[in-house]
Design a protein around this nucleic acid. Structure first.
Lengths: 78, 78
DNA sequence: CGTGTAAGGAATTCTGACACG
DNA sequence: CGTGTAAGGAATTCTGACACG
């Protein structure tokens, strides 16, 4: 499911990450949530998986700018 | 996907229904969204399908109390 | 660099009610 | 019966910033 339907609060629960981390990963171009009219972020289940992967990689010593390349294949343009 | 992850606003967009209609169908026991700590409803993609079905049936002349039975098979307890 | 937090505002959602029919 | 709406409150999310290191 690539449809962006979840708010950041739900993603927080599903990933165990904090909102700060999620927003930071977006800032670093690792995830690309949609936005509602009221500028609230909307994520997909795929985003949740990517986020988990990002966090794992970071704990393995990688940096966000390094992950930007390895996560590139996730960007499927529908 | 039966995971309850969407807020009513997303469901509104996905189904084309109003929040009033969605809440009313819940009141009539046709759908069973989860709740967040802050009492906000959370729906699944299956709920979205059921909601569309409910609206179609209503337009076909059925009443909510009649649909309660025909939708019973949807209640899969995980 | 990656993450925590307090700050103030804006958008979202909630409930109970009155309305129509 | 099914749905619209105005009302007030509570919870959510947003951005920019300061902090640590």
């Amino acid at each position: 499911m690539n449809s962006k339907v979840m708010t950041i609060g739900t993603v927080r629960e599903l990933t165990g990450l904090t909102e700060r981390q999620i927003r930071y990963y977006e800032e670093k171009q690792l995830i690309f949530p949609d936005r509602t009219q009221g500028r609230a972020r909307k994520f997909s289940f795929e985003d949740v998986d990517i986020l988990k992967e990002i966090h794992t990689k970071l704990q393995d010593g990688f940096h966000t700018y390094e992950l930007r390349k390895s996560l590139a294949h996730h960007h499927v343009r529908s």
